[in-house]
């Protein structure tokens, strides 16, 4: 399963920059990111080239961060595909905590990152596969 780096960031100038600075230092490439905004704080969520190493580097700096299992799903960039994926999850009563998507060039390949509630206790992976989608692991994600 793919790993997403979650970092607790307070809502004030320069806090995000402090993170990207540290990631740059260890040569981590940020493939995609999203921010879950909660008012006076937020969670920065990153797909990076080397999640374990990035996690250790940030933790070493005292950052409040964690690696979370997420589903990275290849979703073809054409009408109706996201709806199809979400319908499959909804039919199986699988709850999505947070999600973001991005498109990779040059093939317009859509990737959907899903954070699933209690992921290890659900059959989310097989539901997604049975609906005809490909689940990417870390390696595939970086080598796209």
């Amino acid at each position: 399963m793919a790993k997403q780096l979650h970092i607790f960031v307070e809502n004030s100038p320069g806090r995000l920059k402090a993170i990207t600075e540290n990631l740059q230092k260890i040569g981590a490439n940020i493939r995609a990111f999203a921010i879950q905004d909660r008012g006076d704080f937020g969670l920065m969520k990153l797909i990076v080239s080397n999640p374990e190493q990035a996690y250790l580097a940030l933790a070493d700096k005292g950052c409040a961060c964690a690696l979370k299992d997420v589903l990275a799903i290849s979703v073809p960039d054409s009408c109706g595909n996201l709806h199809k994926l979400l319908s499959a999850l909804a039919d199986n009563k699988i709850n999505i905590i947070d999600a973001h998507g991005f498109v990779l060039q040059p093939n317009n390949k859509g990737v959907c990152i899903l954070e699933i509630e209690n992921i290890t206790q659900t059959n989310a992976e097989s539901v997604v596969k049975n609906a005809g989608f490909e689940i990417l692991d870390d390696q595939q994600l970086y080598n796209l």
Binding site: H6, F8, Q36, L43, C63, A64, A66, L67
Partner: peptide, 11 residues
Amino acid sequence: LYSKMFLGEAK
């Protein structure tokens, strides 16, 4: 926040 106790969830 004590960094080592962070589980990565907003909740």
